[in-house]
């Protein structure tokens, strides 16, 4: 790992000031992707700005039918949080399926979302649920956040502060993990609000996406009789782990599995 200047600001304002006056800075949350990338010299920031000393970013709260999750909550904290377990229990289950226990102790929801790994678990869930991403200066609608592979609509010096989610009538997420990395070869999230169902897919393309036909079909009839092979193979990744066709099949299989488990 190349060297860098290290900062641990106590406030968002301070963090942004440091960012603006540094050459090639990076914000650090849990570091579960950033540090690994720096060790491999895929990235060499001039300055690392550790966000973990900033207060109030690690809280979970609920108000009426919404929950708010602070961006620095770790996957482990989310999986054990009573509010989340009561309101959207499968969100706690999702958190408990990321990486391994030691990774979950460090990795954060905000870090994962800002990183926008196409095979990560949180982005699919955030996209399926009615969710807003709050940053230090605005609110971003979930559908406007994930713009590409490791790309988001966040400005470089913008920090996610929390994620606000409307509690759904039903939510679940399951993945078919790569046996070595545990990243999703395909992951499916389904969120239902009244008769409005959204199905999202992670791992299968360059970014998480909404499966329109599946969403439409499940909105009309929430049963496992879904239309098959609705996703164009051109949209899907093809690599040593799985062909596009295999991923398309997994999308149908996992969607049905969620409905049948319901």
């Amino acid at each position: 790992m190349y060297n860098f200047n290290f900062h641990s600001p106590n406030s968002i304002e301070e963090a942004i000031n440091i960012y603006n006056s540094s050459e090639e800075p990076k914000f650090l949350a849990g570091g579960m992707t950033l540090l690994a990338s720096m060790k491999q010299r895929l990235i060499a920031p001039s300055d690392i700005i550790d966000l973990r000393n900033i207060k109030d970013l690690s809280e979970v709260s609920s108000k009426e039918n919404h929950i708010t999750i602070g961006s620095l909550c770790t996957h482990s904290e989310i999986s054990n949080n009573v509010i989340i377990k009561n309101k959207i229990k499968n969100l706690a289950k999702l958190a408990n399926g990321i990486g391994d226990p030691a990774v979950r102790k460090m990795g954060t929801i905000g870090g994962s979302i800002a990183n926008s790994d196409p095979a990560a678990d949180w982005p699919a869930a955030i996209l399926a649920l009615k969710a807003n991403i709050k940053t230090n200066n605005r609110i971003i609608l979930n559908r406007d956040l994930f713009t590409g592979m490791f790309e988001t609509s966040l400005e470089e010096n913008e920090i996610i502060t929390s994620i606000e989610i409307q509690v759904p009538d039903f939510f679940d997420y399951i993945k078919f993990p790569n046996p070595a990395s545990r990243y999703a070869i395909v992951g499916i999230a389904i969120a239902k609000y009244d008769n409005n169902v959204i199905v999202t897919v992670s791992g299968a393309s360059h970014k998480p996406f909404i499966a329109d036909s599946l969403s439409e079909s499940l909105s009309k009839n929430f049963s496992s009789k879904i239309p098959l092979k609705t996703i164009s193979l051109d949209e899907l990744n093809e690599d040593i782990h799985a062909s596009a066709e295999y991923r398309a099949h997994l999308i149908d299989v996992l969607t049905k599995k969620i409905i049948n488990n319901n």
């Binding site: 290290f6 570091g31 579960m32 540090l35 690392i48 550790d50 030691a102 460090m106």
Partner: peptide, 12 residues
């Protein structure tokens, strides 16, 4: 709780 010492900076 267990964490992995290869993936955390002393500075953190």
């Amino acid at each position: 709780a267990a964490i992995k010492a290869c993936s955390i900076l002393v500075a953190q």
